[in-house]
Design a protein around this nucleic acid. Structure first.
Length: 862
RNA sequence: GCCGGGGUGGCGGAACUGGUAGACGCGCCGGACUCAAAAUCCGGUUCUGGAAACAGAGUGAGGGUUCGAUUCCCUCCCCCGGCACCA
């Protein structure tokens, strides 16, 4: 054993041993199965801290579970299709395929250097035809079942580049490359009927007890089930169908509003140039919900009148930009008296506002000013003819019944969730296996012709999909009639790729089927780990896809992920200088030095190479745009993988954001050096004889109690709480005690040996290389990770005495020592005898004494 | 705008079920070792007052419940994530 800690020598040696032992294979060992999965990365170039943190969390859980005797599957793969590869291609002229595969090779080697216990035999990349052929195959099954279908949808359109833009490519209403004002455009796309599964996706959230409550809440809100009524308003020769959650307010409807894309709006615009112009104006701007929800509410009267189904009143029909074509029917009945958005709109356009629900305590209704209580269901009906005096629930039922009687409406459940549009007008994705034939229409590619391979040599230029211009790809013949035909050039949403990759890991070598029996052996994933930013979309689509595969008889599970851990983001300080024009230049924290006052407060920041000051821009998510990214690779080279792993687990609990700190990394490095030195000193003292715990002196007994308390604490933190930061803090704390004990004259070497062996096993999941090396140095044979988790000796936990805090009126005034399990009377008596307590109780009357056994006494005086 | 989360010393964070606020680490201050520095080791470190014992204040702001609130309830402020074509 070398005298000092040299990770650069240890880590490759230990990794080679693991590799030789096939230690990381999931089909190695015979314990209970445990599937530990981290969200696979997009191969963006190099590993960033978010990846590093995500995979370290997964590895800690994997190694801990393996030490507990489980047979663990921890796979890895690549979410390899997507927009960044096209952007890189535009910037560098390199085909996305080449760029992506180079990145994968580099990032794989980075992951291997970090010592993750990954079963690399199962690696997959979604851009491999052997993977995406099953996207295509299953899409064709969905088409047969009617789950996949074609309809039109709205997209962002860049009129200059003549291309569809992603929401992130729309910056302040303009195309990111051209600066042109973005328009909404309607195009034909393939959709999946996720709304057919809305109720099940909602109901089964209750079974996901291993998921964070906030994620379940977000998904439930996203699915957005609401109960209400569908109501039909006659309008000329047709009906306007609306959905409302408040049929009880029907008598307060004073106008109708339809989306700009609503057929009625279009029809009305045909001979109304002003309206046509307004509808065109509504086409401006992006399609994202955030854009639409924050824009100014605008509208225009169509001149059409709808007939109120109960009162027979004529209601004006408006086009309004706050009505969404994608939700409900693309039309609403407006009740400005009791809906805040309708109220605002009615005030703006001087439409009538009618109160139909009473206010609390019969306060008068003020139609100049919105009040929160207007939207409640607490009151009774007013101004509603026959329904006056009924409560809201009574009126709800009565009005729906009357509508049903007139065939003008019925009860209905509505979901906010919309069907999943999977078509993308992009090159770097999985081709949709459809052939367009002039005679036969849209014809599915026969199974035996799968996969439809994506040509890998194209380079996008930002103006449309290069696949559409690739004759070799597009031109084919119709599988049905043999006539010349064209391939579909849209590709699939990359969320399709990531909706089932976790199933494929279980059988990635099977070239005959999408999944097989091994899939059911491993599923569901016991622990899934990934960023909270995926809390809704990815996780919802993966749940949905799993249910689709279940209904196709391919898998048995209802839900893919039994337990979910959502990790926080990795943040770092930002530094910048601003020029006269207000443009900011950002400097990497690694190039900035801090000045401090004598209390350690930061007073200034200067750029190292020129010594001149820079401004602190606050702590932000690590990002290229702010130049505040810290490269894990550089730190691994400087300190070794174990130090970087240790710091990233120690700095904050996994679910919270982690603020990067080079000084903190230094602290982790120092701890590992002390650990090494402590064991070095222990070994230098000669062989440790066996010892009898019963013969230990007070110091020895105390140390052994701390050791076994620490073992219990760390096991709980790793296995149940997933608070790795507190586990590491407890290990550090114990090491401080152990080093002090070891250096004391009466130390028992056998106890030190027991303690060090336990410490190494406790820290092993976090810093596996140093732990394995020290395990060997302490004369142990076989791998540390085969050695099992240390067991708590209950006899070591027994205390001689406990400290009880004494409060007077809730303030701590003293402490008393007494044997555990002392009676209330004993505790109270000793507490009252304490000197400082006496000072506060002396001339006062004791009103009450609260005793929390072995912990606290509160004496209430007056 | 809507949905979800967060706010505790100079800094990252701890306090798990309403019971000692500040564990552990960083930084800073003082000391040891050294010709010196680095590394390492020892001591101190929430703020205010005090030599100390100790006292007062203190968990984003304000209010409430309770013997007792970082923890539960109400109102407000600020920051972050998601919003369906970023992944």
């Amino acid at each position: 054993m070398s005298e000092t800690y040299h990770p650069a020598a240890i880590e490759p040696r230990i990794q080679a041993q693991w590799s030789e032992q096939l230690a990381d294979r999931a089909d190695h060992g015979d314990g209970e199965r445990f599937y530990c999965l981290s969200m696979f990365p997009y191969p963006s170039g190099k590993l960033h801290m978010g990846h590093m943190r995500n995979y370290t969390i997964g590895d800690v859980i994997t190694r801990y579970q393996r030490m507990c005797g489980k047979r663990v599957l921890q796979p890895m793969g690549w979410d390899a299709f997507g927009l960044p590869a096209e952007n890189a291609a535009m910037a560098n002229g390199v085909p996305p395929a080449q760029w992506t595969r180079n990145n994968i090779d580099h990032m794989r080697s980075q992951l291997k250097a970090l010592g993750f216990a990954i079963d690399w035999e199962r690696e997959l990349a979604t851009c491999d035809p052997e993977y995406y052929r099953w996207n295509q195959w299953f899409f064709l099954r969905l088409l047969e079942r009617g789950i996949a279908y074609k309809k039109t949808g709205l997209v962002n359109w860049d009129p200059v580049d003549q291309t569809v833009l992603a929401n992130e490519q729309v910056v302040e209403g303009r195309g990111w490359r051209t600066g042109a004002l973005v328009e909404k455009r309607e195009i034909a796309m393939y959709y999946l009927r996720i709304t057919d599964y809305a109720q099940e996706l909602l109901d089964s959230l209750d079974q996901l007890e291993g998921w964070p409550e906030q994620v379940r809440t977000m998904q439930a809100n996203w699915i957005g089930r609401s109960e209400g009524a569908e109501i039909r308003f006659a309008c000329g020769d047709s009906d306007i169908k609306v959905f409302t959650t408040r049929p009880d307010t029907l008598m307060g409807a004073t106008y109708m509003a339809v989306a700009a894309e609503h057929p009625l709006a279009r029809a009305a615009a045909a001979n109304n140039p002003a309206l046509a112009e307004f509808i065109v104006a509504c086409q401006r701007g992006g399609v994202s919900e955030a854009d639409i929800a924050t824009q100014e509410k605008l509208g225009m009267d169509t001149g059409l009148k709808a007939i109120h189904p109960l009162s027979g009143a004529e209601l004006p029909v408006w086009v309004a930009n706050y009505v969404l074509m994608g939700y409900g029917e693309g039309a609403i009945m407006a009740v400005p008296g009791h809906d805040e958005r309708d109220f605002e709109f009615a005030r703006k356009y001087q439409l009538p506002i009618v109160q139909v629900i009473s206010r609390p305590d019969e306060q008068p209704y003020d139609d100049q000013q919105w009040h929160e209580d207007y939207a409640t269901r607490e009151g009774h009906l007013v101004n509603s003819g026959p329904y006056d005096g009924q409560t809201c629930p009574q009126a709800h039922a009565a009005i729906v019944a009357d509508l049903e009687g007139r065939d003008a409406g019925n009860s209905r459940v509505q979901f906010r969730l919309r069907d999943w549009g999977i078509s993308r007008q992009r090159y770097w994705g999985c081709p949709i296996p459809i052939i367009h034939c002039d005679h036969c229409g849209d014809v599915p590619v026969p199974d035996e012709d799968l996969p439809v391979r994506l040509p890998e040599d194209l380079v996008p230029d930002g103006a449309g999909n290069p696949l559409a211009r690739c004759e070799a790809f597009v031109n084919t013949s119709c599988p049905r009639c043999g006539a010349p035909a064209r391939r579909e050039t849209d590709t699939m949403d990359t969320f399709v790729d990531s909706s089932w990759y976790f199933l494929r890991y279980t059988c990635s070598d099977n070239d005959q089927a999408m999944v097989d029996g091994r899939t059911n052996d491993w599923m569901p994933v016991n622990q899934y780990i990934g960023g909270v930013e995926h809390a809704i979309l990815h996780l919802l689509y993966a749940r949905f896809w799993t249910k689709l595969m279940r209904d196709a008889g391919l898998v048995d599970v209802d839900e893919p992920f039994a337990r979910l851990l959502t990790q926080g983001m990795v943040l770092a300080e930002t530094y910048f200088r601003e020029d006269e024009a207000g443009r900011r230049t950002w400097f990497n924290p690694a190039d900035v030095d801090l000045r401090r006052d004598d209390k350690g407060r930061v007073t200034a920041a200067v750029l190292r190479h020129d010594g001149a000051p820079v401004e602190a821009g606050g702590i932000e998510k690590m990002a290229k745009s702010k130049n505040n990214g810290v490269d894990p690779q550089a730190l691994v080279e400087q300190y070794g993988a174990d130090t970087v792993r240790l710091f990233s687990m120690f700095a904050s609990p996994p679910t919270q954001s982690l603020e990067w700190s080079d000084a903190g990394v230094e602290g982790a490095w120092r701890f590992l050096k002390r650990l090494w030195a402590g064991i070095q000193a222990h070994l230098a003292a000669g062989p440790a004889a066996a010892f009898d715990p019963a013969t230990l002196d007070d110091e020895g007994r105390e140390l052994r109690r701390l050791l076994h308390e620490t073992i219990a604490k760390v096991g709980d933190d790793f296995g149940r709480r997933y608070t790795f930061n507190t586990a590491i803090a407890a290990i550090m704390e114990f090491c401080n005690h152990l080093a002090r004990y070891q250096g004391s004259p009466g130390a028992t070497p056998g106890l030190c040996q027991e303690a060090w062996l336990a410490v190494i096993r406790l820290i092993g999941p976090v810093t596996p290389h140093i732990a394995e090396a020290l395990w060997q140095a302490l004369g142990q044979t076989g791998s540390l990770f085969e050695a099992g988790w240390p067991e708590v000796d209950p006899s070591a936990l027994v205390r001689q005495s406990v400290t009880v805090v004494v409060q007077v009126n809730g303030k701590v005034r003293g402490r008393v020592e007494l044997p555990p399990g002392s009676s209330r009377e004993q505790i109270e008596q000793l507490a009252l005898a304490e000197d400082n307590v006496q000072r506060f109780v002396a001339d006062q009357t004791i009103r009450r004494v609260i005793v929390v056994p072995d912990k606290l006494v509160n004496i209430v005086v007056a």
